[in-house]
Structure formats: structure tokens, C-alpha cells
Simulated assay, not measured.
Amino acid sequence: MIDCSAIAPAWICQYRGAAFDMLLYLAPSVMLALVIRRLAAWHPFFLLFRLAGTICHELAHFFVGLVTYARPAAFSVVPRRMAGGWQLGSVSLTRVRWYNAAPAALAPFLVAGVPLLVALWRTRPGWQFEGIDLLLAFAVAPQFLACWPSAADWKISLRSWPYLVIAALAWGALHYLHFS
């Protein structure tokens, strides 16, 4: 078990708090994610290290698609060579409408909760680095790469443009009621 002062300068350890502990805990995973991203761009073999993140990314689409009635029909995490790169996975939704396009397409943002929950669990009061934390760093790193929606996801989310109109009307009504 390793104490904060064994891996970081004393001036960093003096600012310890719950949020700081979580950031300190997640820093190796973020750095490892950057290494994995670079290696995967260099050679397709290293896409294997992104598999855990790809599974979470696609499961987020799948389950949010189920909840919002977008009817997920197919699920794949087998990488396919595409023009200009690789498609790491996909979920086919058969009933994408204006009300469920954005939630289903932007669901990978939920994957960011995985590293946060792991950090919250592991940095409880009195925490110290242990052997399991090295394994968790490798498991959490791909989640940082998977929590951002793809370009295709962003295009699909634009089908929910009426949300912007509804939000603007709600904001206008609240603003009007508050100042009248």
C-alpha cells in the first residue's frame, strides 16, 4: 500500500480532499488512455485495449435506446475497417424520433460515470494505492476514450432539434414569470 507522499510531492498532498483524491486517483488512467489512443492509431492490434470502452459506449446506446423506445435491433463490438479509419462498434436503432434521438445518440456521456464511480469507491477516507488499483487503471482508461460520442452520434442527435425550441420556450416562460 502506497501513501500520497510516496508518489506525489508534499505540496500536492497538502490539498487533499475528496475531489482532489479522485483527480489524483484518475490521473494515471487518463495518461494510460492517451497512450492507448496513440498505440491504437499506430497499429490495429492495440484496438484490443479499447474493447472495454467500446463495449460500455455501445451498451450506453443500447440501453438508452431501450428506455427511450428507439428499438435497438443490432449490437456489435467487432472492429471494422472503414474509409479513413476503424469503426469499433455499432448499435442499430430502428425507431429514432425527435424525442429520443439526442438521448440515445449522446448516451456515451454516461460512460464518464464509470471512472468517477471507481474513483469514488477507491478513494474513500484513508485510501492508499494497492495492487488492484493498477488493474483498475487499465480497466478505467478505455472509458475515457469511449465517453465522447462519435461524429455519427452527433449527427443523429441533431434530429432532436425540437428540444432546443422547447427549452427556449421554457426559458422564456420562466424568465417572463420571474421578472413580471
Score class of each variant (00 low, 15 high):
Met1His: 10
Ile2Trp: 05
Ser5His: 11
Ser5Phe: 08
Ile7Leu: 09
Ile7Phe: 14
Pro9Ser: 14
Trp11Val: 07
Gln14Lys: 10
Ala18Leu: 15
Asp21Thr: 08
Met22Ile: 09
Leu26His: 02
Ala27Ser: 14
Ala27Val: 05
Pro28Ile: 13
Ser29Gln: 13
Leu32Thr: 07
Ala33Thr: 03
Ile36Leu: 11
Arg37Asp: 00
Ala40Phe: 01
Ala41Val: 05
Pro44Ala: 03
Pro44Arg: 06
Pro44His: 09
Phe45Met: 11
Phe49Gly: 10
Arg50Asp: 07
Leu51Thr: 06
Ala52Val: 11
Gly53Trp: 06
Thr54Lys: 07
Cys56Arg: 03
Glu58Trp: 03
His61Ser: 08
His61Asn: 05
Phe62Leu: 10
Phe62Cys: 03
Phe62Glu: 01
Val64Tyr: 01
Val64His: 05
Arg71Thr: 15
Val77Ser: 07
Val78Phe: 04
Gly84Leu: 10
Leu88His: 05
Ser90His: 02
Leu93Gln: 01
Leu93Ser: 06
Leu93Thr: 01
Val96Gly: 03
Arg97Glu: 15
Arg97Asp: 12
Trp98Lys: 05
Ala101Asn: 13
Ala102Asn: 07
Ala102Lys: 03
Ala104Gly: 06
Pro108Arg: 05
Leu110Thr: 06
Leu110Ser: 12
Ala112Met: 15
Gly113Gln: 05
Pro115His: 13
Pro115Val: 14
Pro115Gln: 02
Leu117Val: 13
Leu117Trp: 03
Val118Arg: 04
Ala119Val: 13
Leu120Cys: 06
Leu120Asp: 03
Trp121Leu: 12
Thr123Cys: 15
Arg124Ile: 04
Pro125Asp: 11
Pro125Ile: 02
Gln128Pro: 06
Phe129Asp: 00
Phe129Trp: 14
Phe129Asn: 04
Gly131Trp: 01
Gly131Ile: 00
Ile132His: 00
Leu136Arg: 00
Ala137Cys: 10
Phe138Thr: 12
Val140Thr: 15
Pro142Arg: 11
Trp154Tyr: 07
Leu158Asp: 00
Tyr163Leu: 10
Leu164Val: 02
Ala168Ile: 06
Ala168Met: 00
Leu169Gln: 11
Leu169Ser: 09
Trp171Phe: 11
Trp171Asn: 03
Trp171Gly: 13
Tyr176Lys: 10
Ser180Leu: 12
